[in-house]
């Protein structure tokens, strides 16, 4: 069974095609890197896989079509950066929110607290539970978001540039912890980081299409990794979230 199966996936924003007719599958246990230049559609693809943006075509997660998918506790998502409002929120509260899918009534018990501690230990932040999230450095905040994404020990982990701002020692520690979960991993990579060594396969996006699908570490220039995206695409990609500005 594929962990992720995508057929004829297309995403259009503001009339511009951002993802165009993608078809690929990722098997269980694979560690797949998703690469591409800025504006190539990596984050949009991740959001489409998770149902966070409208798309055409079909997405199947862990054998179930996305529109009927309910096993969200099996999925771990780490965003590029938190599009969040987390002032006056402790590190433990942020990570504990990741366990909500397992608890219909939502209240925390000893089991959830143990999971939170385990996840924070995995990212090297044990002992920081009661600190305010916003008082942490950017790299530490990103590690908290990784802990939130892996707190359920999910079968499928989808990460969007998870190591932005994270020091190399912590990257290595987190990569080792994730490897210990035996989960399927799809990770968007922009810079070389500790996960790159663990990749079993690489997908490269260029202008919303699949330019490469194969062994890790393709030659970047051959697949347009360093091309600059058209300004209009970049504008749409950065402004795709509805915002309230009043």
């Amino acid at each position: 069974m594929s962990a992720i199966a995508v057929q004829h996936l297309s995403v259009t924003l503001g009339g511009l095609p951002i993802i165009q007719d993608l078809t690929f599958a990722i098997g269980e246990g694979e560690t797949v890197g998703l690469l591409g230049a800025n504006g190539s559609g990596k984050t949009t693809l991740v959001k489409a896989l998770l149902g966070l943006t409208r798309h055409e075509g079909t997405v199947t997660l862990l054998g179930t079509p996305l529109d009927r998918f309910t096993a969200w506790d099996e999925i771990g998502y780490v965003p590029q950066r938190a599009s969040v409002s987390l002032h006056s929120t402790t590190v433990a509260e942020v990570v504990a929110s990741g366990t909500l899918a397992r608890r219909p009534l939502g209240w925390y018990g000893g089991r959830q607290r143990a999971r939170v501690t385990q996840a924070l230990t995995a990212v090297g932040l044990a002992g920081h539970e009661d600190e305010l999230y916003l008082h942490l450095s950017g790299g530490q905040q990103q590690r908290v978001l990784i802990a939130r994404g892996i707190v359920n020990r999910p079968r499928l982990i989808i990460m969007d540039e998870p190591f932005a701002g994270v020091d190399v020692a912590s990257q290595t520690q987190i990569a080792a912890a994730i490897a210990g979960y035996s989960a399927t991993l799809l990770v968007v990579l922009h810079e070389t980081d500790a996960l790159e060594a663990a990749l079993t396969r690489t997908l490269v996006l260029a202008a919303g299409t699949l330019a490469y699908d194969g062994a890790p570490a393709p030659a970047p220039d051959a697949h347009g990794l360093h091309e600059t995206a058209a300004p209009e695409r970049t504008r749409l990609l950065s402004g795709m979230e509805p915002r309230w500005t009043s």
Partner: peptide, 22 residues
């Protein structure tokens, strides 16, 4: 108060809350 964990989750990070199936 009864739904405070869920209401907190969606108030803090709407996208992440969607990936929890809320």
């Amino acid at each position: 108060l009864g739904l405070s964990p869920q209401l907190f989750a969606i108030s803090a990070d709407e996208n992440f809350a969607k990936t929890l199936g809320l």
